[in-house]
Design a protein around this nucleic acid. Sequence first.
DNA 1: AAATTTAGCGCAAACGATTGCGAAAATGTT
DNA 2: AACATTTTCGCAATCGTTTGCGCTAAATTT
Lengths: 330, 330
Amino acid sequence: MAEVTLKNLAEMLNLSISTVSRALKNHPDISNETKVKVKELAAVLDYEPNTYAINLRTNHSREFGIIIPSISNDFYQSFISSLEEEVRLYGYSLIILQSGNNQVTELENLKRCKQNRMAGVFVSITSNTSDISNFLKLDEQHIPIIFFDKVPSFEACNKVCVDDNYAATLAAEALISKNKKHILSIFGNPKMSITTKRLKAFEATFKKYNSDANVVIQSTNSTEEAFQMVQYYLNEKERIDAIFCMSDEILIGTMKAIQVLGLKTPNDVGVIAISEGIIPTFYHPQITYIETSGFKLAKMAFSRMLACVAGSTYVQELKIESVLVQGGSL
Amino acid sequence: MAEVTLKNLAEMLNLSISTVSRALKNHPDISNETKVKVKELAAVLDYEPNTYAINLRTNHSREFGIIIPSISNDFYQSFISSLEEEVRLYGYSLIILQSGNNQVTELENLKRCKQNRMAGVFVSITSNTSDISNFLKLDEQHIPIIFFDKVPSFEACNKVCVDDNYAATLAAEALISKNKKHILSIFGNPKMSITTKRLKAFEATFKKYNSDANVVIQSTNSTEEAFQMVQYYLNEKERIDAIFCMSDEILIGTMKAIQVLGLKTPNDVGVIAISEGIIPTFYHPQITYIETSGFKLAKMAFSRMLACVAGSTYVQELKIESVLVQGGSL
DNA sequence: AAATTTAGCGCAAACGATTGCGAAAATGTT
DNA sequence: AACATTTTCGCAATCGTTTGCGCTAAATTT
């Protein structure tokens, strides 16, 4: 069965291609009579305009790209899931490109976005991407870029990210209000900006409230390290009464240790985390956490993207304020 | 800065468009001299062929679609992650379409794939999709479809899925070899084919080995239900000595209950699950599980897809045999 | 030197949809 | 009835790339 094209329809109806095209688009030049005839046949034959032809003509497609280090991460997962919904509702498609936290692959992906003349690109950069000139080149092709989550420090670009200061502050305040005195605070890789930001705000909050709490700051690179560390600290004489986990990764290791030692939250030890929100529900009582969900972030990133596609050249840095989700672990 | 096109290059070099095109493609009709000139200019100006024009001409794009109920699922996540890698290596792109387990959305997504004349579509159907005629229509447009994971029962289509019989059998054998006698076996929604398949094979295995174990079969629809159920059974007089969890969802609820009761695996109670593999590492000791990873499945699905794209009309149902991953929970 | 081959390149159509412009037909106006 | 206007539609170009065919001039053969 041959494809149904305007040409096809035109021949069948003894009309010109242009008339058929206009009829389908309700162009005022076309009589009602012909419109009806054309539309009927189009419906019967299930005519669908050829996307490729339209893309060629308009020189842009209704596709967005998203470049991320890896899908296998709760945060990106919720971000993508949420973004895909929005994108679909607006008649766009979403193309996923993983960089595997590799700069070369990241660049290749970027090139793909350029080649495919995508309507726009969402990017969360790899942890060692510093030169973003290649990203900015897309602007020449009028392909807007929205950076999210892991954003470059360069100023003149659109960014949407979690307010790390605020999230860490909320966590610190929660610990202070619960009157915790011996707090183990576990952070991630100190090279990452996310870590330094959170750490800074965390410590500043304790100072601000003139807290007399003994706050032990530690950093880890993996769930396993957190697991070992928590076991070590919970076996110390002067018992830790609360643990702060900067990420889901750390939270998982922390909870493993707590369980191995046969302890329970919140009585034996309090736990609070900054989390995407899924992992905290895996425990009972559910973990109290500061939410840094990808859902909201995706909505914001998308609305910013729409503005850019519509022609906004205005550059913005948006931050999402997290909220404290009360579980029973603190 | 204007786009660099063949026309542009041709004018600059005082050549015809066709010559430029052929020069770039190393056509034998073109002299070496011109080839060099053309290629040099193309390189300098960073010429990139217009994908839209090529798509229009060839009437197909290098894009695959993937339609799934939801991304927020470890299995799909690993599947997509793995698939995206393959797809990218072969110069294709992957477009994600979530159906939200909704048949209407699923159909819309399918239509999008047809409209965009994708090179092929990977589909995991919603739990209540029974009529797959719409999927088969894509064949008319020469768009191959590979069903994966949740596949229709209809025979004449390409399917790639986990061998549920084998996975459940492995789990049962593990329980038998550990000499467990009071086994709580928790399955998912009995309406889903995945549940009935696993249940059937599970029971059959106990029979086959003439096991005298007391196997309690239960079904749940959520993590919360599993949580309640396990608490109930573990409080009974005749103590359960092992729990089988058909899915990650159930495993999470089960472990919550075990922790609330202050029990430990494997001594107080053994646990074994069929799982994607991430969740089992969240506990200590790690949960012993039968792997149903999306990674391998994605590789298989992709190679099958390549064959179809290459013209294979041959229809196949492929199954992946799971393996037992030894943790310390049984 | 004439005839034939071959190397090197350009013309033009095609993919399918859109749109400015012009033309014919229908209607209205004097 | 002659002219002006409006309705209704078709021609042809365009987006960028590819490709069959034909053309010219040089190289080869006779």
